[in-house]
Design a protein around this nucleic acid. Structure first.
Lengths: 282, 282
DNA sequence: TGACGTTTGGAACTCTTGTTTCATGGTTGT
DNA sequence: ACAACCATGAAACAAGAGTTCCAAACGTCA
C-alpha cells in the first residue's frame, strides 16, 4: 500500500522514541490508513499529539505530511490493473420426446427472432434509458418471468421494480408509478381481469407500455402498448413455453447494455462490491 | 470503493447538470478517488469550481463533504485491504445483433438436449409421482425460474410449493418438508451461502434432490443430488441465459404428463373449474 | 542534588479546505 | 422581448489541518 513509508519506518524502527513507536504501530497495522486519514486523526489513534506526529514524519525524511500523502497516493495509482468479469462459457458435444421438445423450442425461438424488427431494439433501449422507473408485471406463470426480468434489469439501471399486487395491494404499488415510467407487461393466456384495469391506470398515468405476449394477443396489445413484442409459443399439451419470452427479455437487456456499456459496467461492478460487502455468496 | 455514492450518482444521472456530470464522470471513472482526494482536487480534475462541487455532494443528499468521505472510508474498512481493484473492462463483444443472440440460444438448447440422457426423464417423472410434496428453490435470478416452475408443476399435481425464505423465514417453511419430498434446486452463479445449509437440511430430512445447474457446478451438485441436469448457459456479457433451464423444466413437465395423462387432464380441468368459479379471468 | 539534553504536549500561528454569498450568463416560457 | 429561473464561478468566510514555538516532564551523569 504505502510501501516506501513502511520501509522507512522499519529502517528506523530500532531508533524510535516511545511516542513514535505508537504512531509506527498504527501505520504498520493498517497500511492503507495514511492514504485516507489526516495526520491529526493518526495522532488521535496513536494517542499522541499532533506535534509529535508532524515531527515523526519529518524525522523520516519527508518535508511535510503532504509529501507523505502524495507518495502513498501515487503508489496506489500505479497499481490499478483490471479485474475482469469474464463471461462463462463451456465447450460441449450430442432421444424422441426430447428431440420433439427441442425442435419445438428451436422453431419458436427462430421464428420469433426472424420476425423481430431489428429497429425495435434501439427504440426500446432508448425508452428504457429515459424512464424514471421500470416496472415488470406478469400473472400466473408469467409472474415468475416478471420476477426474473426485474432481477435481470436491475443490473442495468436503478429503479427497476416488480409490480406484484400480492395480497391485492395494487393501489399501494401503483401509487409509486409516474409519467414516463415504463411498464413491461408479460402475458400469455389466460389473462386475469385485473390486467385491464391495470392498463387503464397505466394509460392515465401516462406510463409507456411494452408488451411481450403471444401472437394471438399481439393485435389487442397494440391498442395499449407503445411497443409489442410477439413471441411464438406453439406447444403441444397444456404447457406454454416461456423460453421464448425469456429469450426476448434477455435480448432487450443485451441491447440496452450495448448502448450503455460504461454505465452498466459501472453499475455491475458496484453491485458486486456491495455483494462482497454483504458476504452472502460463496 | 464507494458503492453508495456511486449508486446515488447513477440514480440521479439523468437529472444532472453539465457541470455535475463532469464531476460524476470523474468519480465514476475512478471510484477510489473520493477516498483519497479533497473536494478541491476533485473540482480541479473535473474542471469546475469548488462551489459547484460542494453543491453537487449536497444535492446527492449528503450533509457535507466530510460525510461523503467518512462513508467511503467506512465502506473500505469493511472489506479486506487488498481485495478491491475497481474499474471494469468491457467484455469484448456482446451479441450485438439479433442473429448472434438467436444463435447463442439455439446452441445452448441444442447442446443441452443432445447431452441429456433420455432415460433420466422417466426416472425423474417417477420420482415426482411418488413424492409427498415438491419444492422449488432458486436464488437471485433463479428465484423467478423457481416461481415459474412452481406455477407450471402445480398444474400437474398437488403439493407443489416454492421455498422462498423471504424475510429469512426458512425455518418456517422447512418445517413443512418431509422424507421423500422432492427438492428441485435451480442454481447458476453466484450461489448464496445459505444454499449449503439448506442442502444439509434436505439431506437430514431425506428429501430427494433434483438439481438444474450449469456444467461448471454439475460435478459438485452430484454430491448432494439424486439427479443432476446440467444446462448450457454460454453467453456473452453479464447476463446468463435462463431459457435453457426453463426449457428443461418444461421438458420434465411434459414427461410427467406423458406418464400420467388422465390424472393430469383431470386436474387441469378441475383447476379450470375453480378459475371459472372465482371469475378472475377474461 | 543540580545541570544538561531529550522528548513531549499545549497553544499560537499559518495555510488550506469546504461552504456560503453574490453577481453573471444562459435558458425557458409567456 | 421580457421576466423568471437556474446553473455557475469568484470571492468572502469559517473551520480545520499541519507546523512551530515554548515550557514542562523525564532521564542521565556528575
Amino acid at each position: 500500500m504505502a510501501s516506501r513509508l513502511i520501509l522507512r519506518i522499519q529502517e528506523r524502527s530500532s531508533s524510535l522514541t516511545s511516542s513514535e513507536r505508537k504512531i509506527a504501530q498504527v501505520l504498520l497495522q493498517n497500511q492503507g490508513l495514511v492514504e485516507t486519514h489526516t495526520a491529526t486523526e493518526l495522532a488521535a489513534r496513536a494517542g499522541v499529539s499532533k506535534a509529535t506526529t508532524a515531527r515523526f514524519f519529518r524525522s523520516l525524511g519527508y518535508a511535510d505530511f503532504e509529501e507523505v500523502r502524495l507518495q502513498a497516493r501515487e503508489e496506489r495509482n500505479r497499481r490499478e490493473p483490471y479485474s475482469d468479469l469474464e463471461s462463462i462459457s463451456q465447450p460441449a458435444t450430442f432421444g424422441r420426446t426430447i428431440s420433439d421438445h427441442l425442435e419445438l423450442e428451436l422453431r419458436n425461438l427462430t421464428r420469433t427472432f426472424e420476425e423481430l424488427r431489428s429497429d425495435l431494439l434501439p427504440e426500446i433501449a432508448q425508452i428504457l434509458e429515459t424512464a424514471p422507473r421500470i416496472w415488470f408485471v406478469g400473472f400466473g406463470d408469467e409472474q415468475g418471468v416478471a420476477r426474473l426480468g426485474q432481477s435481470l434489469f436491475a443490473r442495468l439501471r436503478h429503479g427497476v421494480q416488480e409490480l406484484r399486487g400480492e395480497g391485492q395491494t395494487w393501489a399501494n404499488e401503483l401509487s409509486m408509478t409516474g409519467p414516463r415510467d415504463v411498464l413491461i407487461v408479460l402475458t400469455f393466456e389466460p389473462r386475469p381481469k385485473v390486467l385491464r384495469s391495470l392498463l387503464a391506470h397505466a394509460r392515465t398515468t401516462r406510463m409507456r407500455v411494452i408488451t411481450l405476449t403471444d401472437h394471438a394477443y399481439a393485435a389487442q396489445a397494440e391498442r395499449f402498448s407503445e411497443v409489442v413484442l410477439p413471441c411464438h409459443v406453439a406447444s403441444y399439451g397444456p404447457f406454454p413455453t416461456h423460453a421464448t419470452m425469456l429469450s426476448v427479455l434477455r435480448l432487450i437487456a443485451v441491447a440496452y447494455l450495448g448502448r450503455n456499456p460504461e454505465a452498466v459496467g459501472q453499475r455491475i461492478s458496484t453491485l458486486a462490491a456491495i455483494d462482497e460487502e454483504l458476504d452472502q455468496f460463496e
